[in-house]
């Protein structure tokens, strides 16, 4: 088991020698990920892990990928998507142009879910979906629109519970255990690397989705990122977080109003 001071040393190496800043990640989860990786890659001691991280540039890529969690699914929390479909998107319908930012989008499952929602609410033609993550490899996957076939049954159930009326499989073609989503869905997506820890606001949006990303950050970094979102939201724009994430510890709380029981807030101040 790695000890706290060793984690500090490792995070300092990562920052100073490779420019990755994990110092404000939630420590308990980070410690678990490092211990897991030490077991997976069979490091006999902290010293050997540290040496590898310092000296092996190819290992850094794996290390950073394994430290960050890339779990995502389509239409996760169907009632959340139902609220987007029925209560949020209709209020954006009068806009000439709709900009949406998926911050920390990982392999893109939520971006495709949103594209489908926009198609079904007849807003897709005037929408643009910015999908960002700090990891360029997951973005490359997302851009291809190819996903494993296995979870599609679950996604289809989620989709129907979210109020979807079509046959979910009409959005993709299946082949050899994988599915490829329709090319037209990707046409309105813009993929780019963006690091929430260090990068700035790059546009103004009508809706920002950042679900189950903030849970990996400590409170100070959460506050930084929430302020970045605030700077990137127009008035009366929306912010959507994960099912157990909240604004209750943030200075933003007074200027955002939660709509419905889902974790969606509207900027009122």
């Amino acid at each position: 088991m790695i000890e706290e001071p060793e984690i500090d040393i490792l995070l300092n190496d990562l920052l100073e020698e490779h420019g990755y800043d994990f110092t404000h990640y939630a420590r308990a989860s980070l410690k678990r990920r490092i211990n897991r990786l030490m077991a997976l890659d069979k490091f006999p001691s902290f010293a050997e892990l540290r040496y590898r991280v310092k000296s092996d540039a190819t290992y850094i890529k794996r290390f950073v990928e394994e430290l960050t969690v890339n779990v995502t699914e389509m239409f996760r929390d169907p009632l959340f998507y139902k609220t987007l479909r029925e209560d949020v998107l209709p209020t954006l319908a009068a806009k000439p142009f709709i900009r949406i930012w998926h911050a920390g989008c990982s392999t893109g499952e939520e971006v495709f879910s949103m594209a489908i929602l926009l198609q079904e609410t007849n807003l897709f033609h005037k929408s643009i979906l910015y999908a960002t993550d700090l990891n360029p490899d997951v973005l490359e996957k997302a851009r291809k629109g190819i996903f494993s076939l296995a979870p599609m049954k679950q996604y289809s159930e989620n989709y129907m519970l979210s109020g979807g009326k079509n046959d979910f499989s009409s959005y993709y073609t299946a082949q050899y255990g994988h599915v490829k989503f329709k090319e037209e869905l990707v046409k309105k997506m813009v993929f780019s690397t963006h690091n929430l820890v260090s990068d700035r606001s790059f546009n103004e949006f009508d809706l920002i989705l950042c679900r189950n990303v903030l849970i990996y950050f400590d409170k100070a970094l959460q506050e930084r990122v929430l302020n970045l979102f605030d700077d990137s939201l127009g008035s009366l724009a929306y912010l959507a977080l994960g099912a157990k994430e909240t604004l209750k510890f943030s200075s933003l709380q007074s200027r955002f109003k939660q709509i419905s029981r889902e974790k969606i807030w509207r900027k009122i101040g």
Binding site: R33, V69, V71, K244
Partner: peptide, 21 residues
């Protein structure tokens, strides 16, 4: 503990959540 997350404890005696494998 909420469904579909791991529940972790931080040194400052707060909870944190994790949706890893």
């Amino acid at each position: 503990a909420p469904a579909d997350y791991h529940l972790l404890i931080e040194q400052d005696k707060t909870f944190s959540l994790d949706d890893s494998e």
